[in-house]
Amino acid sequence: MAAGGFCKLPNGTVVVALNLLHDSAAVRVLVHAQNRARALTRLRNLGLRAIYLRGNAAPPTPDEVTAVLHHPDGLIWRTAAPASGVIVVPELWHPIRALLRRPAPQT
């Protein structure tokens, strides 16, 4: 795990942000849940088994919190920004189903 973090909201829920590797690409995943343990359980139930949150090195930004709160599933992702410091236009957030969808076998 490269980085991750969380923030507690005024209503007691949390938003957890994790940077993961998926098919050799870095993605940023956001989860809204009642607590950190439930957020990680939601990801593990989707098949992402080796998910851990150690520390709070990269908590979600206010824009990320807003994005996940406005999504009906409360579970979104997009490709992570490059660590080189180059400013790029971020892509839109995607539902987690788009990340976990398996490509159709080619014949």
Rank of each mutant, 00 (worst) to 15 (best):
R97K: 14
A26Q: 14
R97G: 15
Q34R: 15
G55F: 05
V31K: 08
P59Y: 02
H70E: 10
R97H: 15
I51N: 08
A57G: 05
F6C: 02
H71R: 02
P90A: 01
P60T: 02
R42T: 14
A104D: 11
R54A: 12
I96M: 15
W93D: 08
P103H: 06
N45L: 14
L69N: 00
P72R: 07
P62C: 02
V14N: 02
W77E: 01
L99H: 06
R78P: 00
L92F: 04
L30Q: 03
V16R: 01
N45M: 11
V16H: 02
N19I: 11
A33R: 04
L53I: 05
N56K: 14
L69H: 01
R78K: 10
P105Q: 13
G55C: 03
E64F: 04
F6V: 05
G74D: 06
A17R: 12
G5W: 04
H70G: 12
A3E: 15
V31N: 07
A83K: 07
A58H: 06
P82W: 03
I87P: 02
S84N: 03
A33S: 08
S84G: 04
T79H: 13
S84Q: 04
I87L: 05
H22Y: 09
A50Y: 12
N56G: 11
H94D: 01
L99Y: 08
A58M: 05
V16W: 01
L9V: 04
V88M: 05
S24D: 10
L75G: 01
A26P: 07
